[in-house]
Design a protein around this nucleic acid. Structure first.
Lengths: 150, 150
DNA sequence: CCTGAAATATTGCCAGA
DNA sequence: TCTGGCAATATTTCAGG
């Protein structure tokens, strides 16, 4: 589906997305125009979804990671609840999970105090929410969104 | 700590990291050299950690997301176990959590079959691991690493 | 911390293979 | 799908405020 040359380009971009095309072309041994053509194609095909800056959460007061299991009320309309949870700024991930048919959220807040506020003021007050169970993170060994590409 | 101009630059890069500096400078109304100076400084200060391409997991056979709670044996050396778990390619995140003093992993695999293989062959075979409890994701509403910056 | 100028490098387009 | 050429842009450095 994706050939070796494109995989090499993607691996380079996984490491350092903001580098000149010309340098990528040097590393893979193609003309810059060929690399550009491949990248544009992968963008159009939806293989590449975009490019992001990776910021240090500590420098923006978002040190505290937590995971929150949200149990909806039996009559809750699930898709709506998912959207409402996703709309909260400090909620980074919203997954609907097999375990107990609820949501699992990943959130980032300044500290446990603001985590408490998020729970009390924004999540537990939703009419669709029955209960929540929070797991706070003490330390993180690895945290990436980089998927394995072969 | 970080002024409004730098925040605007970062917000632009959060959306589209791989755009010419000159375009950033047009959007924020500074000379290109000033924008370059600010970005370099933030890179050196560790405010900016890097730049990544965002790939579509479906196109690389990593559709299945799961969360795995790993309970270590009572005598396990925790930092080592964290490193060993982090070294597994399809393990994207390794968090040491307050809940039961174990690890919470986020993983991405092709499907539930390869998730099973990961558990049986790589994780449950570790000498430090007592047990695991896996939560598979049925659907994802939101998944970003973009933190809230103001 | 900024601007503006100048040298160097890159991008993006196109023709041709 | 590639290369190579070329004009238009972009990057980066530096002097000066």
């Amino acid at each position: 589906m994706i050939d070796q040359k494109s995989l090499r380009i993607l691996k380079i971009l996984q490491e350092k997305a903001r580098i000149p095309n010309a340098e990528v072309s040097r590393q893979v041994g193609l003309a810059p125009s060929a690399v550009l053509e491949r990248i544009r194609k992968m963008e159009n095909q939806g293989i590449i979804d975009g490019y992001e800056v990776r910021l240090n959460p500590e420098r923006f007061n978002r040190k505290q990671v937590a995971f929150i299991e949200v149990t909806p009320k039996p009559d809750a309309y699930i898709p709506d609840l998912g959207e409402k949870l996703a709309a909260i700024a400090d909620v980074l991930e919203v997954h609907y999970v097999a375990n107990g048919d609820g949501f699992l959220l990943k959130v980032r807040t300044a500290d446990t105090l603001s985590l408490g506020n998020l729970l009390q003021q924004k999540i537990n007050t939703m009419k669709e929410v029955q209960s929540t169970k929070t797991t706070t993170v003490l330390s993180t060994t690895k945290e990436t969104s980089r998927i394995t590409i072969e």
